[in-house]
Write a protein that binds this DNA or RNA. Structure first.
Lengths: 156, 156
DNA sequence: TTTAATTAAATTGTGTACAATTTAATTAAG
DNA sequence: CTTAATTAAATTGTACACAATTTAATTAAA
């Protein structure tokens, strides 16, 4: 590993590495936040935050899933999910029930309202993309780029 | 704009768009969080969080900058920055002083300790990259990819 | 100039994130 | 079988992140 550090230093000035725009994470961090802000006007009418939206996305893909598996899909732990799921329950979009065969698990299921909300949410991805890109030329390359990035990250 | 929506629907099923892995933002959001977690063991010894680290990065690039301009660089508002800057001040890394010519502005300057911390932080970017990538082959393409993505986002 | 509008920070309130701990249930080991 | 280890959620505590409001200072307009 030390060899690799040396390799990088051969070609790039160490000081440049601290430059904000060279930071691997900073770009991701800013892009992510900026896009999440773009979701807000689209999700507000549905009564959803970004986090509750992706939670429902996961449930629309796979209903009746426990908190642990949901967290694995969303890369969120119970500390984040539990309060969000309680709010979704209070909004009558999901139910939270202890699993009868293993009382440690809590199963999350969509209610009729939760399922119906999907129809309203169908337009969100397109609206988001329209609000980001002027035209759709860049779109597929953008998605490919991000997916490959995501796969790369999963090798962590 | 409606034309563009139609174009997308011609090629991609509307329902597929809701699939989590097709989500533009979700990939960014997860990658960003995962990398920030990777910073933690590197920043803990310096007594920094990720946000205070990028704040110092900005100051190491440009010292003696007011909160507004710092926020523009970091894409953070005063609601986030003020508490962080107060903590950095309490840690003796920066000073916060009202600008004499315009008392509305607060100038942030590095202390001697704040400047010296940069030397310790020089190794962080390399260490981070080593902890993410097994080898450094993918590195420059990764940075290019993210920089182009970032530039794209700045056209919002 | 005296008020009105603008601007920069700070403050307030809400909503994540996540580490660490706790609680309760299940499984494994002796 | 009974205790020990493990597991899943929930809880607790800390730290952002940002919208909206407030406060104080500056600038613009009447």
């Amino acid at each position: 590993m030390h060899d690799n550090i040396e390799n990088i230093n051969d070609t790039v000035n160490k000081d440049d590495f601290l430059k904000l725009d060279n930071q691997l994470c900073f770009s991701l961090y800013v892009c992510s936040k900026e896009i999440i802000k773009k979701y807000k006007p689209l999700l507000d009418p549905l009564g959803l935050t970004y986090t509750s939206y992706i939670t429902l996305l996961a449930l629309w893909e796979e209903d009746n899933i426990n908190v642990k598996d949901l967290g694995k899909k969303l890369y969120l732990d119970s500390g984040t999910l539990t309060p969000i799921l309680k709010k979704l329950e209070a909004a009558n979009l999901v139910t939270r029930t202890r699993c009868v065969t293993d009382e440690r698990n809590v199963n999350i299921s969509l209610t009729k309202e939760g399922m119906e909300l999907k129809e309203k949410a169908l337009s969100v991805p397109n609206e988001l993309i329209c609000s980001i890109f002027k035209d759709n030329e860049n779109f597929s390359s953008g998605i490919d780029l991000l997916n490959s990035l995501h796969r790369l990250m999963e090798t962590f």
